[in-house]
Amino acid sequence: MEKWPDNKAWFLVLPVVVLVCFSAIIPLMTVVNYSVQDILQPGMGFFVGTEWFERILHDERLHGALQRQVLFSLTVLLIEMPLGIAIALALPTRGWGVSACLVLLALPLLIPWNVVGTIWQIFARGDIGLGGAAVKALGLNYNYTASATDAWITVVIMEVWHWTPLVALLAYAGLRAIPDAFYQAARIDGASAWAVFRYIQLPKMRGVLTIALLLRFMDSFMIYTEPFVLTGGGPGNATTFLSQFLTRLAVGQFDLGPAAAFSIVYFLIILVFSWVFYQALEGMGKGASK
């Protein structure tokens, strides 16, 4: 293999390395340190070994939060990915409509997360909210503060409303990057719309869809603010996902040791999922380009 004699370019990534050290690696090391100690107050901790890990691994509440989290992430991914691609395919490709659609699409992404929660909290209320009142007018007994199913549906719809535009914008960017020659060749061959999508558009969007899938999975798996504002994790624990469970443990009960141990497990779950997704999509890409 050819070796590069000049490795000065590595110095250009040094600022990023320093930044990542301060923002991620040093805090992560601190969390690992906390996870093996009983922290009574800052500067006063007792080594407890793996006790916190054993406790959280056997915690039924954590198992429940994990199951809800996996179900939530899978549900939103299954809706957001196809919907985002469909929206991108339906968007205009020229004229003033492009800018108008892109601005409209980007709007939900510009709203702060806690405001998204508040908007939906009011919108979904049966008494004063437009959405809630409309559903009630259809004769459905809808109340997201009392029914677990209603709360779930509301949180999923909110998440889909908030983040599908990201998938759509990324997919749209991928679509626009396809040279016209591909479509011309497809027209000459008399390819159907489905064939164009399956053999030209989808493979060409692979890169952006990988990014969209990874971003959406990780974001949805770490979701906190929106359900916290909308449902507060309720009714009961119906919409308490991992982040909220973790926050209750760390901030609410000040159980820093178990919370740190749980954070590490959480981190490892995200790492595994992201890596598996990445490998799967890389493999798919290689298969498609053959």
């Binding site: 690992v32 340190n33 100690q37 070994g49």
Partner: peptide
């Protein structure tokens, strides 16, 4: 670095 709450086992782990 006391705020990082170092212990000997975790230090050995990271090293």
């Amino acid at each position: 670095l006391t705020w990082m709450a170092w212990t000997l086992p975790t230090a050995v782990f990271f090293i």
